[in-house]
Simulated assay, not measured.
Amino acid sequence: MTQSDPAIEWLLDSDPAIRWQVMRDLLDAPEREWTAERAKVETKGWGAKLLACQDEDGQWAGGAFLPAGFGPREWRKQGQPWTATTFSLSQLREFGLDPSSERARRSVALIGANARWEEGDQPYWQGEIEECINGRTVADGAYFGIDVSAIVDRLIGERLEDGGWNCERINGSVRSSFASTINVLEGLLEYEKATGGTPASRQARETGEEFLLERNLFRRLGTGEPADHQFLRFLHPNRWRYDILRALDYFRASAILTGAEPDPRLGEAISHLRSRRLEDGSWPLDWSTEGRVWFEIDDGPGKPSRWITLKAMRVLKWWDAGV
């Protein structure tokens, strides 16, 4: 891939949160160049805009998972809101806010001191009760330098017999879900990047990966039918939701960390990803979630998406180099 590629040029003509990842993942730029671009996330574009929405106590919208004052009526009329602390922090991680920056360190310290989960009232960095939420909390905490080992141990103990996770386990579910599993896997991977992981966390990650791989990332194990046709439609930001591009991007990151070769069982999802590329070299945003957001970062469903395109191009670059 070269900077003269029209799709690359289009990605570079964007926000620092996109540009630095293009430089690192697609153009193999020297580290000093992409880190300089990454530093701009704190002061320019989407990253700076989201940081400007932060409350003085370190939270966003006055809550951990839900905005202050949010009620069931708004949920019914507008959908789940995405402005509270957990979703804002995850978005900053995706943008690539430097975790060693003074702003990042101060933010996570304030969150630890002031944010408490609406479900259970426990301090933020002790985790919530649902596996889906705790997977993302582990990912954010590990990325930003917080000791989340206690939440990791809890997630390991909550693994189901089929190797994955389901946030409905507490209500009696005994089968893992694609969404819960990818949320936990991303958290365990970030934890492993930060700390090296433990034998138990690495084993849990392996069984969670196997849960997805033996289903080709989207099929029911029993019938072979798609578990949900939405898994084949591309979404951004994913929040807690699952699609095959999210899973492919995870497996790419996992393989880079461990040195593993691409698993052939990813091939069907890769073929579908290739089939969705537009004539101009981009990929479209298929749908987006309803609900309150701080600001939009895509042009809307049906339009080319820089975030989807970035992830798709780096997945295919990794896959093509390894097969």
Rank of each mutant, 00 (worst) to 15 (best):
A104Q: 03
T83C: 04
A84S: 07
V138C: 04
A150G: 13
E119K: 14
F87S: 07
L155M: 03
L160R: 07
A113D: 10
G120M: 07
R93I: 14
A109M: 12
E102T: 14
A142G: 00
Y124T: 03
D98S: 03
E158V: 06
E118F: 09
D140P: 06
D98M: 02
W117I: 04
V148S: 05
N166A: 08
N171H: 15
A104W: 08
S149Y: 03
V108P: 09
Q122N: 11
S101C: 11
A109Q: 11
G157V: 07
C132V: 08
A115S: 10
I146R: 14
S100N: 12
L160D: 03
I111F: 07
G127Q: 09
N114V: 10
N134K: 03
Q126D: 13
I133V: 15
C167I: 08
E102H: 10
E168T: 14
L155Y: 02
G120V: 08
T86R: 13
A139K: 06
E128M: 10
N171C: 14
R154S: 13
L89F: 05
S101A: 09
F87L: 12
L97P: 02
G145K: 02
R106G: 13
Q91M: 15
E128Y: 14
V152C: 00
I156S: 01
F144E: 00
I151V: 12
R103I: 15
D162T: 10
G96I: 03
S100E: 12
W125P: 02
V108C: 11
I146N: 04
P99R: 10
A84K: 02
P99L: 06
W82V: 02
R169C: 12
V148I: 08
G163S: 09
N114Y: 11
S149H: 06
N166C: 10
T85G: 00
D162C: 10
R103Y: 12
E131R: 07
E131Q: 10
L160N: 06
R159H: 01
P99W: 08
R93S: 02
A104P: 03
A115M: 05
R159E: 03
F144T: 00
R136C: 09
D147C: 01
I156Q: 05
R116Y: 12
D121S: 13
R105L: 10
R103H: 12
G120P: 02
F95E: 01
G96M: 04
L110D: 05
E102K: 13
E130K: 14
V108H: 11
